[in-house]
């Protein structure tokens, strides 16, 4: 099946920067994401992960190479509106993506832009608000919502446009733990309903909720692995300034001290079992 997102040999630098290689934010990125996948892109600040995300719906265009969304190249101007309809995007700051003075009007904004007829609009708005758990708050002013609610409102605005892909561009990084949980739960349920999800984050903990994880650093994809594979190799995350899951840290430390554990642990349970077996030898 044709991938929904196809990135081929993409190079990018911001205008005005030196044209030498080291100023490129993205260097020769190749990537394809299939329909229904749940992918996390993880990397330290300044690694180019948000830049890459913004290329998925043509907010930024590559200097070299090509990005195709459902077969449509982002560089062709006529495709742009279809592409933005296909790929919805939730940004970092919950305050700076709400346009209207009521919840209902904000969800309507995208639909109005698409020219959706009014009767259809009303149906889609109530469905989207239900999906994010904001039914009954239609008349509320965005200012009175919590951070998590604001982000859910933004997600409703995207869902109403019925995209095939939703990209979360560090959408949880400004939220408190409560708001973060709300959004992460919503991401999981979106994935379950068949939407393709791309989650950009610098939290390893959040990344490990996805099925496939891409590590990006210094403008290049360093690792691209299914979750379980990455878990085994996650001691390498430290190299890129990212956090290593605690069980993996402990495992590595114990091995270094000469404790006979297997080379890789598959999960926390695995580690616990191994330590327990050693201790109960007596």
């Amino acid at each position: 099946m044709e991938p929904i997102i196809q990135v081929s040999n993409v190079w990018f630098k911001y205008p005005g920067e030196d044209p030498s290689v080291e100023y490129f934010v993205l260097r020769d990125i190749n990537l394809s994401i299939g329909i229904g996948e749940y992918v996390a892109i993880i990397g330290p600040n300044g690694s180019g992960k948000s830049t890459l995300a913004r290329m998925f719906n043509g907010l930024l265009l590559p200097n070299q190479g090509e990005i195709k969304i459902a077969g449509l190249a982002t560089t062709t101007l006529e495709n742009l509106w279809d592409i933005r309809k296909t790929v919805g995007m939730v940004f970092q700051n919950p305050d700076n993506q709400i346009v209207a003075t009521t919840v209902r009007d904000d969800v309507a904004f995208g639909l109005e832009n698409l020219g959706v007829p009014r009767s259809e609009m009303q149906k889609r708005i109530s469905r989207a608000l239900e999906a994010v758990g904001l039914s009954g708050m239609e008349e509320s002013a965005p200012h009175y919502l919590s951070g998590g609610q604001k982000q859910r409102l933004s997600i409703a605005g995207i869902l109403a446009m019925q995209p095939k892909v939703v990209v979360f561009d560090e959408a949880t990084s400004m939220l408190d733990p409560q708001g973060r949980k709300e959004v992460l739960n919503l991401i999981a349920s979106l994935h379950q309903s068949g939407t393709t999800v791309v989650h950009i984050t610098h939290s390893a903990e959040e990344a490990f909720l996805a099925k496939r994880i891409l590590v990006i650093a210094k403008g290049q994809i360093q690792l691209d692995l299914p979750r379980d594979e990455l878990y085994k190799q996650s001691i390498n995350l430290e190299k890129w300034g990212l956090e290593v899951p605690l069980p993996v840290q402990l495992h590595q430390r114990l091995i270094k001290r000469g404790i006979p554990l297997t080379d890789h642990v598959k999960s926390t349970e695995d580690l616990v079992m191994q330590i327990w077996k050693l201790l109960s030898k007596t």
Partner: peptide, 29 residues
């Protein structure tokens, strides 16, 4: 959940946890 006697829960650094486990494992390995 597996290990008895339990590891004290007032350990909050990786170093401490590592040393604690090493002390105990030393006796068996």
């Amino acid at each position: 959940r597996q290990i008895h006697p339990p590891i004290p829960t007032n350990i909050f650094s990786m170093n401490e946890l590592e040393n604690h486990l090493i002390e105990r494992l030393k006796k068996v390995v």
